[in-house]
Design a protein around this nucleic acid. Sequence first.
RNA 1: GGCCCCAUAGUCUAGCGGUUAGGACGUUGCCCUCUCACGGCAGUAACACGGGUUCGAAUCCCGUUGGGGCUGCCA
Length: 499
Amino acid sequence: MNNMKTRFAPSPTGYLHIGGARTALFNYAYAKHYGGKFVLRIEDTDFERSEKKFEEDIIESLKWLSIFPDEEIIFQSDRLNIYRSYIDKLLKEDKAYYCFCSKELLEEDRNKLIAESKKPMYVGRCRELKPDEALLKTPHVIRFRVDRSPGVATGFKDLIRNQHISVANDEIDDFVLVREDGIPTYNFAVVIDDALTGITHIIRGDDHVSNTPKQIMLYNAFGFNTPEFAHVSMILGSDGKRLSKRHGATSVNQYKKEGFLPEALVNYLIRLGWSHGNDEIFSLEEIIKYFDLKNISKSAAIFNTEKLLWLNSHYIKSKDPFDLIDMINDIRGDLESPLNIDIKTASLVDSLKSRAKTLVELRQKLGFFVNETIDYKDEILSEFNFNESDLLFLKSFREFIDGLNNEIFNSDNIDLTDKAGKANALEMLKNSIESIKNEFNYFLSKNNWTMKEKAMIIRLAFTGEKVSPPIYEIIFAMGKERCIKRIDKFYDYIINIKR
RNA sequence: GGCCCCAUAGUCUAGCGGUUAGGACGUUGCCCUCUCACGGCAGUAACACGGGUUCGAAUCCCGUUGGGGCUGCCA
């Protein structure tokens, strides 16, 4: 069944939000699973609200998530002539009609009906009108003539609920197909495009279920084959309400900026409302392999950042430190200098990657290393009581660092230009750190000291913080000179507060 | 208000007539440990309610309640 085709059809009236990303992902995964095609269509018929920057964001964000369309992107604004020819057909067959009611008049009608506690539907004033040339020159819209025969209903089988959803025709308004400015409305354009481009399966948000019967009427009116429909329930915020800005980040690009990996977001989004047994971790390949609409849950899902963070840390841990450096540099803010792509930085990133849940956090934890100098803060250090023996220790620790073999730190001949070089570098790094560890342990035991009692003062001297990567790794990354500088600075700091 | 949809722990979910109701996030405790993490082990917590059907219902049916969506010349 290789003519299966799905689509993602966002309107560029906002940045790609996570709900849209999930819909795109479902469509993509479904098509790929069955060896079909996935296409992207930008529904930009609302000129008021559509913006170029949103359009670009949607395309970029999908790319970032590795969701690639199989065909050229379709823009509805390029297809206005096509819609026009199809509306003529409907008019000719009397399946649609001109409506000359003004917006004000319609508003009045509506208010009156609501006051009488009736359904606010179009009253049908122009339904049987036969307009002449002169009248046609006045402002008008084109409405679809819904079959109002008693007992008639329009329905479809929803692939996710696996059940028939049917709505009585008299619940459905004579909806507008073409607006006063001649631009087609959503319900009309979407049917023409889906039919003409051969979309076989429409997977979209729950909020469209009430549009589906209208669209099916149009498929029938044009004699098109109706596609299959699947309505995915929506993503809700932490309070169970519709997800919005006040719940935090809602757009894909925000998650990128906040240091999430696309793998994590994809994994989170696919698991939100879909399952494959008890599995939690899915690569895109695995998603494609296992995905099916049968396993999509019917109920709405609440977005949970904690779990996304867990997935993100999982994927960060699995990354090569050099890749992480690239990614951190890619999303860095204007105020941050780029990270050096060298073995020293990589060693710290490698160590820090299990300690950070986002790239942003990882970058922050690198602060003591990236900044040439650090300031010791009284509010952190005041809780420690340093004494003479600490000063003595710092002196001999300084000597120890100074006496370390320079070869341990030598990374001059390491070639980082390709994957193999980087892998090799990572191996050498481990050896160097192991050497430092051995030397340091010897230094400690020689003096009858333990790591436990000396680690904190070293940590404070090197980073100014109570929390840091392991000592040996800091020594390797900073090198002898910088370590000694900080020991000296810390020594002075203690001397000063002692006075 | 009307129409449509949904309902297993705080959250995401497995389950598809017979299970000690499983997994994951979170959370708690312990272990590991140079800090913090990672990791390992253990614990915590759920079938919304009421009627049916059935020998037997989380599972099937009906209702109640709660939630969501739609009710635009937006998509």
